[in-house]
């Protein structure tokens, strides 16, 4: 019981990170109908920028308490946002009128470029970081097994929920969110009503990248070990989460992320750690075969 409880906590905090990345996938898919295959690497870039910020702040002696973490977060979000903008400009916009697969290929190319750029500039070795936030709360104790809710997990869950709340308000209540939804439904018409669709698409990439940066920072704080390759696996799992939740659906992305996080954690806990990725990707296959629109996927609205 206690063991399951611990897995639940671990699964939720891991799932939150997947959910944040998945939101970026699903947003970009919603607005341009394509998967951003460089998105996983945006997450990796976000994690690296957080590490750089931590080191810079530690050097300046400013890395203490919540204020330090907030600074790290802002630094990473701001610069990763620029990466998101650049990806759209380089890999997507010039190919917008082109055939459908062309931007996917250029995005995969960009993904390789980003990985190699980080590998060359930061080194290929795994980067460990000393734990910034230690300890946790003892939730329950059973037969000597202590269920712990680490402070980093509280941080992950709290920050993720806050970010998603802000994001939800942005999409449902603000003109920018309305413009994003309008572009999603009929881009040409949106442009005829005076919406700058190019800018709206750019901002969508920037927001997606910012969410991935938050995920990157959280990942770094929780696991403390990053390398240039983490974006690939995390990206594909978040993509799985987005598909499971229903690609194009924002609540679906978060739900899918949580489910993938829980499945992966419970699988590692009760079956085998070696096969945890197989479990996650089996979900992708099963979803695509039996539930192509995902759990919360929208029915295609027929355009008249």
């Amino acid at each position: 019981m206690a063991y399951a409880m611990q897995q639940l906590i671990n699964g939720v905090s891991l799932g939150m990170i997947y959910g944040l990345i998945a939101v970026g996938y699903t947003m970009v898919y919603g607005i341009i109908g394509m998967i951003n295959f460089a998105h996983g690497d945006v997450f990796m870039i976000g994690a690296f920028l957080s590490l750089i910020a931590v080191l810079l702040l530690s050097m300046g002696g400013l890395m203490d308490g919540p204020a330090g973490i907030l600074l790290v977060l802002l630094f990473s979000v701001a610069i990763t946002g620029v990466y998101g903008w650049a990806i759209e400009r380089i890999a997507y916009r010039p190919l917008r009128g082109s055939f459908r697969l062309a931007p996917l290929i250029s995005a995969i190319g960009l993904s390789i470029v980003l990985q190699n750029f980080v590998q060359v500039s930061q080194g290929a070795r795994v980067k460990p970081m000393e734990t910034l936030v230690q300890g946790g709360i003892e939730v329950m104790r059973e037969d000597g097994f202590v269920v712990q809710l680490a402070y980093t997990q509280i941080l992950i869950i709290g920050v993720t929920l806050a970010v998603l709340a802000i994001f939800t308000v942005l999409v449902t209540r603000t003109p920018l969110g309305r413009a994003m939804r309008a572009c999603e439904q009929d881009r040409k018409m949106a442009s005829l009503l005076g919406i700058d669709t190019d800018r709206t698409i750019s901002l969508t990439f920037v927001i997606g990248a910012a969410l991935a940066a938050v995920a990157g920072t959280m990942y770094l704080l929780r696991y403390g070990v990053i390398d240039f390759y983490i974006g690939f696996l995390a990206g594909v799992k978040a993509f799985t989460a987005a598909v499971l939740g229903g690609i194009g659906s924002l609540p679906g992305a978060v739900l899918g992320g949580l489910l993938i996080g829980l499945i992966e954690t419970f699988w590692s806990a009760y079956f085998s750690v070696q096969y945890k990725d197989v479990a996650a990707f089996s979900i992708l296959v099963l979803t695509l075969v039996f539930l192509p629109t995902g759990l919360l996927g929208r029915q295609e609205v027929e355009k008249v």
Binding site: L176, R178, K303
Partner: peptide, 27 residues
């Protein structure tokens, strides 16, 4: 060519996107 998934009111607000956007400082 309305935006079918948005409410009637939202469809009208979308049309006033320019001035609204300017007032929000880009969201």
């Amino acid at each position: 060519r309305l935006f079918p998934g948005m409410t009637a009111l939202e469809n009208l607000l979308i049309a006033q996107h320019g001035p609204l956007m300017a007032a929000t400082g880009w969201g």
